[in-house]
Simulated scan of single mutants.
Amino acid sequence: MSECETWDYTLYIPNDLRAVTVCRRTLRVILTLHGLPGLVETAELLAAELVTNAVRHTKGPAALRVRRSPRGLVWIGAWDTDPEPPPPPRPLERALDLEEGRGLGLVTACAEYWGWQPSARFGDRGKYVWCELSAA
Rank of each mutant, 00 (worst) to 15 (best):
S2G: 09
S2M: 08
E3N: 12
C4A: 05
C4V: 15
E5H: 05
E5M: 07
T6A: 03
T6V: 11
W7L: 05
Y9Q: 02
T10L: 04
T10S: 07
Y12M: 14
Y12R: 14
I13K: 03
P14S: 11
P14N: 09
N15S: 09
D16P: 03
D16M: 03
D16C: 04
L17Q: 08
L17C: 02
A19S: 14
V20G: 02
T21L: 14
T21K: 14
T21M: 11
V22S: 13
R24V: 02
R24N: 03
R25Y: 08
R28C: 08
R28A: 12
I30Y: 10
L31Q: 00
L31T: 01
L33D: 15
L33P: 02
G35Y: 01
G35D: 01
P37W: 03
G38I: 01
G38D: 06
L39Y: 01
L39R: 00
E41D: 14
E41W: 08
E41V: 11
E41A: 15
T42I: 09
A43I: 10
L45W: 13
L45P: 07
L45T: 13
L45E: 12
L46F: 03
A47L: 00
E49G: 05
E49C: 07
V51S: 02
T52E: 10
N53H: 10
A54Y: 05
V55S: 08
V55W: 08
H57P: 04
T58C: 09
T58M: 04
K59I: 12
G60C: 06
G60I: 06
A62S: 12
L64K: 01
R65D: 04
R65Y: 04
R65N: 11
R65A: 11
V66Y: 09
V66Q: 10
V66H: 10
V66W: 09
R67D: 02
R68T: 01
R68D: 00
P70I: 02
L73N: 12
V74I: 07
V74S: 03
W75R: 15
W75G: 14
I76C: 03
G77Y: 07
G77D: 07
A78N: 05
W79S: 07
D80Q: 04
D80W: 02
D80K: 00
T81P: 02
T81Y: 01
D82H: 06
P83A: 00
P83K: 00
P86F: 09
P87Y: 08
P88N: 12
P89K: 04
R90Q: 05
P91I: 10
P91T: 09
L92P: 00
L92G: 00
E93P: 11
R94S: 15
A95P: 06
D97P: 12
E99D: 12
E100N: 13
G101I: 06
R102Y: 15
G103M: 05
L104E: 07
V107L: 03
V107P: 01
T108V: 13
A109T: 10
Y113I: 15
P118V: 10
P118E: 13
P118Q: 12
S119F: 07
S119V: 07
S119R: 06
A120Q: 15
R121G: 11
R121F: 06
F122W: 13
D124Q: 15
D124A: 14
Y128Q: 08
V129D: 11
W130G: 09
C131Q: 10
L133N: 02
S134M: 09
S134G: 12
A135C: 06
A136L: 14
A136S: 15
A136Y: 14
A136H: 14
